[in-house]
Design a protein around this nucleic acid. Structure first.
Length: 270
DNA sequence: CTAAGGACCTGTCGGC
DNA sequence: TGCCGACAGGTCCTTA
C-alpha cells in the first residue's frame, strides 16, 4: 500500500484534523511493531500540541515541542481519522486521541511499520542516513550521476536504496525504469549521463503524478464514483508480467532483482 | 566501503 | 470445501 505518494496523501489527509490540536492520550493496543513501541509514549506526548505534520521519505512526522512522533506505515499500514465512537477493528493497533475528539487510528496487519519518538534536538538514527528527497532539487544529476558511477549494482536496486534517494518503492521503481527505457538489471555504472537525466526525470514525474492522483495505488482501489483508480489506469509494467507492453506489444518479462519481483519490457528497456 | 541475503508478520490467492 | 505454499506495497541488520 504505502509508497511515497500514499504516505504523502496520508499526511495531507490527517493534517487538517490534527494541526494545532493537543494529544490527549495515545492508546497502544499492540506495541509489537517493527520496533517495540515505547511504553512511555502516551505519558511523554499527552498534552503536547501537534504543531506540524511533516514527511521525510516514507516517515510521517508529527511535530511537538517534545520532539517528533515518527510513523512508518511499512508494507501494510494505514492511518484513518475517526470519531471516538467508531469501533476498533482487527489490526487497529494504535489510537492517537486529539483534543478535538478525533482519533488518528493506525491499522497495520503485517506490523512492519513503526511508531518511534525522536526527541527534540536529536537526530534519530532512522532519519540520519536517509538519502535525498526525490521531488526536490537535491535529487539532481550532480548528486546522482557520481553515485551511479561508483556502483555496479542493478540500477533498480540503486533507486530503491533509501540511503541514496528516499521514497522509490517497488511499484514506482518499475514504472520509472520503463518510462526511462532502462533495463532494471543494468549495472548502475554502465548508464550514460544522458540516460540518468531521463531516469531522474521519470522518477520525479511518476511520483508527482501518483501524488496528484491521490496516491491511490491500491490494487483494489476504486474511487467513490466507481472509476478505476490510478493503479489500474496508469501502471504500465507493475503486476503485468506476460501481458503486452503498452508501447511495442511484446510480452512483458519478469525477474527477481534484490529479492523483489520486477516486470519490464526487454524490447523497450535496454 | 559495497553487495547480497535474511529477518520481521499476516492476509490472500492459486493449485491440488 | 480445505490445506499448503508462494507471494505481497518496506527496510534494517548481518554477513561476506
Amino acid at each position: 500500500m504505502p509508497e511515497l505518494p500514499e504516505v504523502e496523501t496520508s499526511c495531507r489527509g490527517i493534517e487538517p484534523h490534527c494541526i494545532k490540536q493537543n494529544i490527549t492520550k495515545i492508546d497502544v493496543r499492540q506495541p509489537k511493531l517493527r520496533w517495540l513501541v515505547d511504553a512511555e509514549l502516551s505519558p511523554k506526548l499527552s498534552g503536547e500540541e501537534i504543531s506540524q505534520v511533516k514527511r521525510r521519505g516514507k516517515y510521517i512526522l508529527l511535530q511537538t515541542s517534545q520532539g517528533d512522533l515518527m510513523i512508518h506505515l511499512g508494507m501494510s499500514g494505514s492511518l484513518r481519522v475517526v470519531d471516538k465512537k467508531v469501533e476498533v477493528t482487527k489490526h487497529d493497533h494504535i489510537d492517537i486521541c486529539l483534543s478535538n475528539g478525533k482519533i488518528i487510528r493506525y491499522n497495520d496487519p503485517r506490523r512492519f511499520g513503526c511508531f518511534v519518538l525522536n526527541m527534540e534536538g536529536e537526530q534519530h538514527k532512522l532519519l540520519n542516513k536517509l538519502g535525498v528527497e526525490p521531488l526536490t532539487d537535491d535529487f539532481s544529476l550532480d548528486y546522482f550521476y557520481p553515485i551511479c558511477k561508483g556502483r555496479k549494482t542493478a540500477i533498480k536496486s540503486l533507486i530503491m536504496n533509501g540511503q541514496v534517494v528516499v521514497g522509490v518503492g517497488n511499484i514506482y521503481a518499475q514504472e520509472a525504469l520503463f518510462r526511462a527505457k532502462i533495463n532494471p538489471h543494468r549495472a548502475a555504472n554502465s548508464i550514460s549521463q544522458k540516460r540518468i537525466v531521463d531516469l531522474i526525470e521519470a522518477i520525479k514525474l511518476i511520483l508527482q503524478r501518483a501524488i496528484e492522483a491521490g496516491g491511490s495505488s491500491l490494487k483494489d482501489f476504486t474511487s467513490a464514483d466507481g472509476k478505476p483508480g490510478y493503479f489500474q489506469q496508469t501502471l504500465q509494467v507493475y503486476g503485468r508480467a506476460g501481458k503486452q507492453c503498452a508501447v511495442c506489444k511484446a510480452a512483458l518479462e519478469q525477474a527477481v532483482i534484490g529479492q523483489r519481483n520486477t516486470v519490464y519490457c526487454s524490447q523497450c528497456q535496454k
